[in-house]
Design a protein around this nucleic acid. Sequence first.
DNA 1: CCGTTTCAGTGATACGGTTCAGTGAACCGC
DNA 2: GCGGTTCACTGAACCGTATCACTGAAACGG
Lengths: 328, 328
Amino acid sequence: MPRKRATIREVAQATGLSPAAVSYALRGLQVSEETMERVRAAAAELGYEADPIARALASGRTGMIGLLCGSLEDLWQQSLAVGISRGLREKDRYALILDAFGDPARERALAQQLRDQRVDGLIVQPIDPAAGFWAELCESVPLVAIGDSVAGTASEVVFDNRTGVTLALEHLRALGHRRIAVLTPTRASTPDRPADRHVTAEADRLGLDVELTTAPHGLAGATSAAHDLLTGDKPSAVFCFADSIAYGVYAAAQELGLSIPGDVSVMGYDDHPMSGLLTPGLTTVDWDIDGIVRAAVRLMSAAADGGTRRRVMQKPTLMERGSVARLS
Amino acid sequence: MPRKRATIREVAQATGLSPAAVSYALRGLQVSEETMERVRAAAAELGYEADPIARALASGRTGMIGLLCGSLEDLWQQSLAVGISRGLREKDRYALILDAFGDPARERALAQQLRDQRVDGLIVQPIDPAAGFWAELCESVPLVAIGDSVAGTASEVVFDNRTGVTLALEHLRALGHRRIAVLTPTRASTPDRPADRHVTAEADRLGLDVELTTAPHGLAGATSAAHDLLTGDKPSAVFCFADSIAYGVYAAAQELGLSIPGDVSVMGYDDHPMSGLLTPGLTTVDWDIDGIVRAAVRLMSAAADGGTRRRVMQKPTLMERGSVARLS
DNA sequence: CCGTTTCAGTGATACGGTTCAGTGAACCGC
DNA sequence: GCGGTTCACTGAACCGTATCACTGAAACGG
């Protein structure tokens, strides 16, 4: 049995003060220096620790931030989540990490559940940034969107996917690739993603012949999707919209006895630490994950403290390794 | 401004019942079928959703499970955390994921913070299983330990590290390795870990010459530790007590122009999905992560519902790939 | 010396549910 | 027809804190 914890009333009794005074004292408000000391001492004596639940009920603040990830099968998103969770801990907040499994309907349901859980704020990497409920959600909880811009008054850490896509496709084109398969993450339903539009637009501009297919983030799923892609009339290069998916291409190539970049070139997107370790190293678009983490935490702190909306733009760089061949 | 939510009292008023009746009805207790329907309808009408905070205060249950990880820099532990988080979600619980950064002191502090947060249970992958406070913690919150056994009445998913170490070392010995460096995860302070003892014991038994060094889980840190190890008079094989650390050995070997397994053999421990993708594939000790996740979730559910303590033992298997050479 | 601030602290109420003891009515067997 | 159950529901207390409105005393300015 959990032993009963001391309450604020007991501390009040012990010090001969009112519960209100104790409440103030413990938060360093409105009381004399001397009283504060007395209260602190009594609290320590009794092993008193304010009950976060009761505190949350009374004050309306929980100290918890919801972190809603598009798909935690993606190793890069895992890193992002871990980083943000750490960053929030440093600001004395807890992160409640949830996974939408790439499903927009689930994303919506979880976002609302988190709000009902009374989180102080919500950090989201939206699967479907065009969905209508984001704007509405901003009304009831401070929101920070990572990746794509959403409607409403959310703060945002926006990825400049336009530039990212351009970097990738121009690099492929410069090395002589014309026929390129693009693997984008599978969604339960397929919202019209801005990033996808950039791909087709840029491909048109550069005169590339691209074909979009979807693949799951998980290694097994991505491998089988890539397997299908690489059998038969295969493209000269595969551009994966997440390093995790590119890993599947490596696995499939291995299974099929194809060499990278000899038989097929691979381009990633994210730059997960493991990408540099593969043979050959994965050429990919790097997104400075630490910068994103810091920005997200900063914007969330500001928003949760009633600050104003802000928006930062994240720029990508091309990380050239060895997975893209120059076509003769 | 968050619009005000409906309260149970408003639902009561709308249905002409007492708040108590509504409370029961919504949880399917003690009321007639017909009343339940009426209450459900009224609740839906008003958009009523029970406030989890108030509920937690009154009932003493939060629906939240603390998940305290040894070090989330370890990719395998990341996967484990994500898996457990998903598993708990399926049981309508939320996971509060925290990272001890490999620091026993921090582990202790976080465990207590989580208890004070009123989590319904705590899942821990203890850094220092021998620490005294685990037993005490069991008294106040249902506890599930993963990995090593802790004192007290916790449920446990214990890894048979003895067998794991034996598999690894016997394999290395069978292939002719005698001088082996062992890289164990860095701890802020170094508690006497059972796994480390197994290593020295087994090494003695097998007549191996082992040298223990520590390395961080993060790729950068592990790489530099491995770098030191591989310069100068290097061993014929490195046994890493986490695949994440082995990744650092791969990176260091690459920097130094050493070939794996030509110049040095590497053995991992965990079997992270990426391990099969490296060149050569990492020979490692596999721990059926899905089984561990399922067991942990099951034990936690049982413990949180007031069930009895249980203990399951997890068996490893050797996953032979190509990173260990046969010495002539 | 008086009117106004400031300070330190109080009492009451709010937060939004859960839960326990109790109540009247219907139902039961005999 | 009567004691005893069961059923469906009620009223009130309670969970442990925050916060608002207020008060007496001290400090202050002129």
